[in-house]
Simulated scan of single mutants.
Amino acid sequence: MRPDERRSAIMRAVKSRDTKPELVVRRLAHKAGFRYRLHRKDLPGKPDLVFAGRRKAIFVHGCFWHGHDCARGDRMPTQNRDYWSAKIQRNRARDTKNVRLLEADGWSVLVVWECELKDRASLSSRVESFLA
């Protein structure tokens, strides 16, 4: 398999829902006793977890795809660098816009980054304090 075909196969396999980081955050919220809805289409950005009664939403972002400033998010593919740079910038702009729209409508928003899953205890307390 050629390298470009291999990369295409890898990118096709990337999911936007039910990712491992998202499932971890769901388990943490559920274990803490909070119930939620998933990916509500009527809200800007379709937040990953929505706590409608509390007017709170959680986005779970992959560090690479959303341009986080950690080691994983700071990596840029060597091939087609201009495309990826522009794509990640568009993703960041869209994320910022969606958070602003939600907050303007009275929602509280928490963004959980993929790299934050390394410290589950800290993440759990952060999610619980956000939802309390």
Rank of each mutant, 00 (worst) to 15 (best):
S8K: 10
F130A: 01
I88D: 07
F59Y: 00
A86Y: 10
S8M: 11
R12L: 05
L38G: 13
N91T: 06
D4H: 13
R6V: 13
K118V: 13
L23R: 07
S85T: 12
R120K: 14
R120N: 15
G106D: 02
V112S: 00
R37Y: 08
Q79Y: 14
R55Q: 12
G33L: 02
D105H: 08
A86D: 13
S124G: 08
A86R: 15
M76F: 14
A29F: 00
D119M: 02
G45I: 01
R90K: 10
G106I: 06
N91E: 05
T96W: 07
V127I: 09
T19P: 00
S85V: 11
R92F: 08
R92H: 08
S85L: 15
M76W: 10
V127S: 01
R7S: 13
A13P: 01
L123T: 07
V24W: 01
H66E: 00
G73P: 01
W107E: 05
A71R: 05
S129N: 10
D42T: 14
L101P: 14
Q79T: 14
V111N: 01
A57Y: 00
A9S: 12
K97L: 11
R37K: 14
R54T: 06
G53S: 14
D74W: 02
D119F: 08
C115A: 06
L123Y: 08
K46R: 13
R7G: 11
K46F: 09
S125H: 12
M1D: 13
R54P: 03
R26V: 09
E103C: 14
S108M: 10
P44T: 06
I88C: 14
L23I: 02
R120P: 05
P21I: 12
Q89C: 12
D4F: 12
R6T: 12
R75D: 03
P44L: 05
R27T: 10
E5F: 08
P44K: 02
R35P: 03
I10K: 09
H39E: 13
W65A: 03
V109M: 04
L49E: 04
F51A: 03
R2G: 15
I10D: 06
H68M: 04
R27P: 09
S125M: 13
L131E: 02
L101E: 10
D74Q: 07
V50M: 03
H30T: 05
R26G: 15
L43F: 06
Q79A: 15
D42V: 09
R75M: 14
R126P: 00
A13L: 04
P47W: 04
K20P: 09
L101I: 11
C115M: 03
P77C: 05
W107S: 07
T78K: 08
A121I: 11
K118M: 10
R100D: 14
R75T: 13
P21C: 10
R26E: 08
R72A: 15
M11W: 07
D42M: 11
H61A: 04
R100P: 09
A93I: 07
K15R: 13
V127G: 00
F130Q: 05
K41V: 14
H66Q: 02
D42H: 13
S85H: 10
Y36T: 00
L28I: 08
E5A: 12
S108H: 03
D105A: 11
Y36A: 00
R126F: 04
H68K: 03
G106K: 02
A52I: 08
K97P: 04
N98F: 06
V50L: 02
I10T: 12
M11Q: 06
V99K: 04
D74F: 03
W84G: 07
A121S: 12
